[in-house]
Structures are given as structure tokens and as C-alpha cells.
Amino acid sequence: MIHLLGPYLLAAVLVGLGVAGVAVRRNAVLLLVGVELVLSGGLVLLVTTQAAGADRWAAGSVLPLFVVTVAAAEVVVALAVVLAAFRARGSIDLDAPATAQDAP
């Protein structure tokens, strides 16, 4: 027996934290931290559905696996892009406005 309030609240709080993290960070890498938190909130929701019994085709477990994998792939690409940006611009500050050099 488990009360569903806990998971739901945990998901909500994690998402809230993640959103705050995404909104507050200027460092491109640290933005990932916020995103991961939101994702984990989503994971908790998915798994909770499985725990609550509404679970066709074991979606509650399989979808999180997909999500984790996709997230990993995204992180790989993200870091590559961040590195490229760092190399090209010398900064990974998301607040940096487009300068004349950034103009196409």
C-alpha cells in the first residue's frame, strides 16, 4: 500500500525546482541540471502510474527507460554544442546578446 500523494507532490516539487533552475541559470551546462530535474519529475509521474495499476504494456517502466536514454543522447549533443560554442565565442553565457560578430 502506498499513498499516491507522496509521488505526486514529489513530482510537482521536482518540476518546480527544475523550472526554477532552468529559469535562473546563465551557464549553458548548468541549464542541464534544471532540465534533468524536470525530467525526473516526469519519471516519477510515469512510474507512479505503474504503481497505481494503470499500466498497459508496462508503459510505466518502459517509457522512463526511453526518456532516460533520450535524455542521455540529448546531453551528449548538448555538450558537444556547448563546447563548440565555447570554442567559437569563448563563453557559454546564455545571457550573452547577439553581437555584431554573431550576426550571420
Binding site: V19, V22, A23, R26, A28, L31, L94, D95, A96, P97, A98, D102
Partner: peptide, 18 residues
């Protein structure tokens, strides 16, 4: 949109979604 800041873009996404 002049600054074309990435953080603005992401802020808009999050705020818009909310």
C-alpha cells in the same frame, strides 16, 4: 527580440508553457 539571448528563448518556453 533584439538581443536574441538564448536565456530569453528558454524563459519564454518555460513561462509560455506555464
Amino acid at each position: 527580440h533584439r538581443g536574441e539571448r538564448s536565456s530569453t528563448a528558454v524563459g519564454l518556453v518555460v513561462g509560455g508553457a506555464l
